[in-house]
Amino acid sequence: MLQLSALYRYPLKSCKPEVLQSASLDALGLSGDRRWMLVDATTGRFLTQRALPHMSQLSVLWNASGGVTLAAPGFQPLDVALPEDLPANLRGVTVWRDTLMVPDAGDAAAEWASAFIGKPTRVVHVPEARARWLPDGYGTVQDKVGFADGFPLLLIGQGSLDDLSARIGRPQEMLRFRPNLVVSGAEPYAEDGWKRLRIGSVELRVLKACSRCILTTIDPATGQRSADREPLNTLKGYRLKDNEILFGQNLVNDGEGRLEVGMPVEVLE
C-alpha cells in the first residue's frame, strides 16, 4: 500500500525544513511553505544555497499568524512578524525570470539576515494575492506559487531514493532533494508515471519531473558540498533527459485540505 511517509515545510526559501506530522494545504501548496525569502538588498534577486551553502544552517519556524522565527548557530533567534501589504512596505524582487512586488519585513530582520549572509540582505514575504503564476504550459489559470522555484509541491518516492543510494553505495539524505511529500510503498521511480493522486480528501495533479541542480550536492546537516559531486554524478548517468537531471515530481493541489503522515496515497491516473 502506498502511504505518505514524510512531510516537510520550508518556511523560508533555501532554509532548513520543518519536519511535520500534519499540514494544511492552501492555494499556494503547504500552508507556510516558502512564503519568505532572502534577497540581495541592492538588486532584489533571490538568495539560495546554490551560491550560499551556509543557508542550509538557517532554521526558520513558521507560526500560525504567518510570521517566522529566524535562528542559526551563533545568532540570537529573532521573531519576525508578518509585514503588512502596504505600498510603503513593497520591494521589487526577482525569482528566476519572475519579478514581483512583495512586502519587506523591516530593518531588524534585514540586519539579522545581513549579518548571517555576510552582505546587505532583505527579508521579504509573499501574500497569496501577490504570488506568481506557474510556468507557461503547466497547470491552469488559477494555479499560483509562492517563492518555490516553480511549483507549489514536490513529491519523491522513498523507493527512488533507496535505489539511488544503492547505486552510489552509501545512504543519501532525502533532504538533499527538499521534497514536501515523501511516498513509501512504490517501486523506484513509479512516480514518473503518475498523473493524479488523492491523499485524504485532497486531489493533486502531477505537472512535471523536477530538474535537479548543484544544491543536491550540499550535505543538509553540515552545509558542505560533496567532494565527489554526489548524488548528481550518479543521477546524471541514468536520469538525464533533454539535458536535465530528473528526480522527483512537481505537483499542485486542487483545493484545500489537510495531510497527515501515514495517510494512504491513491493513484487516480
Rank of each mutant, 00 (worst) to 15 (best):
A71Q: 12
R176C: 12
L204V: 05
S5P: 02
C213G: 04
P127D: 11
A88T: 13
T99D: 13
G169T: 09
F177W: 05
G66I: 03
D33Y: 01
E260V: 14
Q172M: 10
R132N: 13
L232H: 05
A115W: 02
W96R: 01
S211Q: 12
E18P: 03
G44P: 00
G193D: 15
S24N: 14
K195D: 12
G223E: 03
D192M: 05
D104G: 05
T69Y: 02
Y8P: 01
A166Y: 07
F177I: 00
G29P: 09
I117N: 02
P152C: 09
R9A: 07
G67R: 06
Q21K: 15
D242A: 15
R170N: 11
Y189C: 13
L58I: 00
R45C: 07
R198Q: 15
W96M: 10
G92H: 11
D149K: 08
C210V: 10
F151P: 01
A88G: 11
G32T: 06
N89A: 11
K241S: 15
A72K: 01
V141S: 11
S165M: 11
E173I: 10
L154T: 08
A166R: 13
A190K: 02
A64S: 14
E203Y: 06
L78A: 05
D254K: 02
K144Y: 12
N250M: 08
P77F: 01
A166Q: 13
L2N: 07
V261Q: 07
P171E: 13
E256V: 05
S226P: 09
T216H: 04
S5I: 03
T234S: 14
G169P: 09
Y189W: 15
V39N: 01
L90Y: 09
E256K: 05
L47S: 06
L7D: 02
D40Q: 09
Y8E: 04
G200M: 11
G157Y: 07
L268W: 01
L30F: 14
G106F: 01
I214D: 09
Q76M: 13
R35G: 02
L2V: 06
T69E: 01
E111K: 12
Y8G: 03
F177Y: 06
A71D: 14
S160T: 10
P188F: 11
L100N: 12
L28C: 07
P53H: 03
V123R: 05
L207A: 00
R225S: 13
Y238H: 15
A190F: 03
S65V: 14
T42S: 14
I218K: 01
D107T: 09
R229P: 00
P11L: 01
P264A: 09
R239D: 01
P87D: 13
G32L: 08
R45K: 12
L58W: 02
W96A: 07
A110M: 00
L70M: 06
L28S: 03
G118H: 04
Q224Y: 12
P135V: 05
P171H: 06
E18K: 03
L12E: 04
Q224W: 10
E18G: 08
V39H: 07
D79W: 00
V261G: 00
E173A: 15
K241A: 15
R225E: 10
P77H: 04
G257T: 08
P220Q: 11
L240I: 12
